[in-house]
Amino acid sequence: MKKVSLSFLVAGAIFMSGNGLSVDAAGTGDNSKFTADIKSSSQKRMEQEKEKDFKQWKETKSAKVGVFAIPGGTYRAISVPSFKQETSYWCGPATTKQVLHYLNGSSSSQSTYASGLGTTTAGTDFSKIDDYLNSKQSKNNYIYSSGNSYSTWSDRIDYSLSKSVPAPVVLDLEIYPSYMPKYTTHIAGHILNVSGEDSRNSPVQIRLTDPYDQGSRGVTLGNVWHPHKGVYDANMDHFRQAILW
Rank of each mutant, 00 (worst) to 15 (best):
V169H: 00
Q85K: 03
L100G: 06
S5N: 14
V219T: 12
Q85L: 07
N31M: 08
F126P: 10
A11M: 11
E86N: 05
Y132F: 05
L192I: 10
P81M: 02
N134V: 06
Y212R: 14
D30V: 07
L117H: 03
Y132M: 06
G12R: 04
I157V: 13
I187Q: 00
M16Q: 10
I157G: 02
Y150G: 00
M16L: 12
T35V: 09
S32H: 08
T112K: 14
F126L: 14
T95D: 01
N223S: 13
E174A: 04
L208H: 01
T124Q: 02
D24S: 12
D53F: 10
A94V: 07
E49D: 12
K52I: 04
N193G: 01
G196I: 01
A94R: 11
Y179Q: 06
A188C: 05
Y212S: 03
E49A: 03
N201M: 04
K139F: 15
W90K: 02
M46C: 04
Q110L: 01
K2Q: 12
Q56W: 13
Q214H: 09
I243E: 03
S79D: 13
A69N: 09
G72A: 14
S202A: 09
Y150T: 00
S42R: 13
F68L: 04
D237Q: 09
S82D: 10
A11I: 04
K55S: 12
Y159T: 09
T74C: 07
L244F: 07
F126S: 05
K182G: 01
I243F: 05
K64R: 07
R200Y: 07
G18E: 11
R207M: 01
Y159I: 04
T112A: 11
P203I: 03
G105F: 12
W90V: 01
M16H: 11
D198H: 06
G118N: 03
D198K: 06
E174N: 05
V169D: 00
K163D: 04
N201Y: 10
V65H: 07
